[in-house]
Design a protein around this nucleic acid. Structure first.
Length: 492
RNA sequence: CGGGGUGUGGCGCAGCUUGGUAGCGCACCUGCUUUGGGAGCAGGGGGUCGUCGGUUCGAAUCCGGCCACCCCGACCA
């Protein structure tokens, strides 16, 4: 980034405007909202308390969904013998370029190098083989919360770092139908989670062969649209067939004494989802957090000086206690800063609701309420509404829910505005420059590459829902594949 | 790996052309005054100028090597 394109005042108070330079804006927000810092080694990231609090909320709500669908958590090792990766041909090929390999330990060269897991299909396959011998052992439904390492050439905070946190689900089933049902079930869980927790409407679909997970037969993905019109893959669910079962001897005896290979699945969502939240909802004032992921859903700012401040602070604490009783995450900002500073700071940090409580309010028995987005005045500032403490406390749950719905509706409207069905190349090229293009495609990898070469757009997915349609490929004119339109976009 | 940049207090930068031993803004500390949209004044702390070597009486500045990081492409959750 050239110095000239950066904000005039990156050290000061203003963020780089999003329309000016999304990349600089993103970096500013991550730093100034105290989500994360760069680690000392290239591509590494320190997740700061505010950012980690978001991750914990995400983690908990996603984990609840895994438990509700019958999964159990377990932990598998960080180090994997290098030879394991080689056992599944496509899998090695896919991951070889981004592996970190440990060659020395305890001051000695290792007999066999150890790979730092880029994902755990192989170790888990090995363990499944040990644990499974009968159809009665199936299905086995496991999830692991861990860190993985993929050597990245071009890191970007949260979106693509060398080490990242995620969960990886791994299951084994007696037959294809059961494994496919699992693949789709978790795909639905991710989609539902993205919408109902992260407030991001997703395009649901299946990856084209070229974009599939290395070693998978089918890969399902949820793709969100970011504020710059680019797509972000936010969760994937794979049907692995018997590929890993054959590579790791995951076999069982069925009801008829016949030896069979298990059908496996895997599915993951990562800290990248935090990047999705930043890029899907943020604006020129900074972060915009969906209430279910906001570490503070409400911030109360007491105003005044001297005795008056002591009075408003005491009242703010009382109010906070009442809100907490309703299960709301509240923070009272008692820092020695001006009110104006705090308003801007919490807007930057994306807090959904702000309550101001000054001497005049205390006198009148009211509080002032402002919300982060969706209710601005002509000057682009949040409108302030006068409420009694009772009204605030009684209405806060509904207000947060409405705010969540507002974020979803806003993101849907934005996506609709930036999506189009296109049938000619000129329109296609213009469309992928600003958003999603729904187009017919022949399915040939070479043709996908030609499109990417020219427009930097890739097929994101073949939507799972939507009308059947056939015709000719937008690029080469040959008959279309998939029986559906394909969503093309530039992607993170 | 290709292309483009940058390395100077915590952050952002100036100084380098024309060598003379480091400065500005923000942040930080202290005090007083302030507090309804990023407070003011005064005082103060903090930097072997990425690194190694060379030139020179003297190097942030000139020369050479090395290293690191950032941005744009190819790979990826």
């Amino acid at each position: 980034m050239s110095a000239a394109k950066q904000s005039d005042d990156r050290s000061g108070r203003s963020l780089t405007p999003m329309h000016e330079d999304v990349s600089a804006w993103y970096g500013d927000v991550v730093a100034r909202a105290e989500l994360a810092d760069r680690g000392p080694a290239k591509g590494t990231m320190v997740i700061r308390p505010y950012g980690y609090a978001i991750w914990e909320l995400l983690q908990r709500q996603l984990d609840d969904r895994f438990k509700a669908t019958g999964h159990q958590n377990a932990y598998f090792p960080l180090f994997i013998p290098e030879s394991y990766l080689r056992r599944e041909a496509e899998h090695v090929e896919g991951f070889a370029p981004e592996l970190a390999v440990v060659t020395h330990g305890g001051g000695k060269e290792l007999d066999e190098p150890l790979v730092v897991r880029p994902t755990s299909e192989t170790v888990i396959g090995e363990m499944f083989a040990k644990w499974i011998s009968s159809y009665r052992d199936l299905p086995i439904l496991i999830n692991a919360w861990n860190n993985v390492v993929r050597w990245e050439l071009r890191p970007r905070m949260f979106l693509r770092t060398t080490e990242f946190l995620w969960q990886e689900g791994h299951t084994a089933h007696a037959d294809e139908a059961d494994a496919m049902a699992e693949t789709r079930r978790m795909f639905d869980v991710y989609d539902e989670f993205a919408r109902n927790v992260a407030a991001i409407p997703m395009v649901r679909g299946e990856k084209t062969p070229g974009e599939r997970f290395a070693g998978a037969l089918r890969t399902f993905t949820i793709e969100g649209m970011m504020r710059d019109g680019k797509a972000l893959q936010s969760g994937t669910s794979h049907y692995l067939g018997t590929n890993f079962a054959r590579a790791f001897d995951i076999t069982f005896q069925d009801e008829h004494n016949a030896l069979q290979h298990a059908h496996t699945t895997s599915w993951g969502m990562s800290t990248r989802m935090i990047g999705a939240v930043i890029l899907a909802h943020g604006d020129d004032r900074g972060l915009v957090l969906p209430p279910r992921l906001a570490p503070h859903q409400v911030v109360v700012v007491p105003i005044g000086r001297g005795d008056a401040l002591a009075g408003t602070t005491a009242e703010a604490e009382r109010l906070a206690r009442r809100l907490r009783e309703r299960g709301v995450r509240v923070h009272v900002d008692t820092r020695d800063q001006s009110p104006g500073f705090k308003f801007n700071d919490w807007e930057l940090k994306g807090v959904p609701l702000r309550v101001e409580l000054g001497p005049r309010d205390l006198e009148a028995g009211v509080v002032m309420l402002a919300q982060r987005v969706g209710d601005d005045d002509e000057d682009g500032r949040a409108r302030k509404h006068r409420l009694t403490p009772d009204e605030l406390v009684d209405g806060v749950g509904a207000r947060l829910d409405a705010y969540h719905d507002l974020l979803v509706a806003r993101a849907e409207a934005f996506r609709a505005d930036r999506s189009a069905t296109v049938d000619d190349r000129t329109t296609f090229d213009a469309q992928v420059a600003v958003g999603f293009a729904h187009a017919l495609h022949c399915g040939e990898p070479a043709c996908e590459e030609a499109i990417q070469e020219r427009t930097r757009a890739t097929p994101r997915c073949v939507p799972t829902e939507g009308p059947d349609e056939t015709g000719v490929c937008i690029e080469c004119g040959r008959p279309s594949a998939y029986g559906r339109r394909v969503v093309f976009a530039r992607a993170y």
